[in-house]
C-alpha cells in the first residue's frame, strides 16, 4: 500500500499545503479511507504535523479513517428522507450492525455512512448498499435487507 501513497504524492510535485485536500481525496479514492500511515506519509511530504492533517480531514464529512466494510451502507438524511422517517432507519441500522456513522463493524461486513442527499427523493427514505438503492425502507424492512447481505457470506 505504501508505494501507492508515494505514487499519489508524486502527482503533486510542488508539495504545497494547497494540495492537501486533493491529495487526501486521491488517497481515499484509492484506499477507501485515510490510514494512519497515509496521514504520516502526507505529513512528511508536505512537512505538516499529523495533528493539522487530521484536523483538516475531520473538518469535512467526506473523509473516513476506518476501512470500508464488505458492504458499504449509505443512509440518506436529506429533507425528504428525514420527513419520511430516515432517523428511525438510521437508528435501527446502528443498532443492528453495532456501529455509528463513519465506522466499520468489527466483523468487517458492514460500514456505515450518512449522506446529505442521494438525489432519489421519490424513493424516500432511501439507502444505498454498495451503490444499490433500497427504496422506502422502514425500521422493520431494513432488518431483512441487512440480513440478506449478511447471509451472502
Amino acid at each position: 500500500m505504501e508505494t501507492n501513497i508515494k505514487s499519489i504524492l508524486n502527482n503533486y510535485p510542488e508539495g504545497s499545503a494547497d494540495s492537501l485536500i486533493p491529495m487526501l481525496q486521491d488517497i481515499q479514492e484509492h484506499d477507501g479511507f485515510l490510514s494512519k500511515e497515509a496521514v504520516i506519509e502526507v505529513g512528511k511530504y508536505l512537512k505538516m504535523p499529523a495533528s493539522k492533517i487530521f484536523g483538516v480531514a475531520t473538518f469535512y464529512n467526506q473523509f473516513r479513517f476506518t476501512p470500508l466494510g464488505k458492504n458499504h451502507i449509505q443512509v440518506c438524511r436529506g429533507t425528504a428522507c428525514h420527513v419520511l422517517g430516515s432517523a428511525t432507519v438510521l437508528e435501527e441500522i446502528e443498532k443492528n450492525i453495532g456501529v455509528k456513522s463513519g465506522q466499520t463493524s468489527r466483523d468487517g461486513i458492514f460500514s456505515l455512512e450518512v449522506v446529505a442527499c442521494i438525489g432519489a427523493c421519490g424513493l424516500a427514505p432511501v439507502i444505498a448498499i454498495n451503490g444499490n438503492f433500497h427504496a422506502k425502507v422502514t425500521g422493520e424492512s431494513i432488518k431483512e435487507i441487512l440480513e440478506n447481505y449478511r447471509n451472502q457470506e
Binding site: K36, V39, P49, A50, S51, K52, I53, F54, G55, T58, F59, Y60, F65
Partner: peptide
C-alpha cells in the same frame, strides 16, 4: 494538538 471535527462537534486533540 489541533482542532478536530467541526461546529458543535469540535474538540481539541492529538492526531487521530
Amino acid at each position: 494538538i489541533d482542532f478536530i471535527n467541526r461546529g458543535s462537534q469540535s474538540v481539541i486533540g492529538s492526531a487521530f
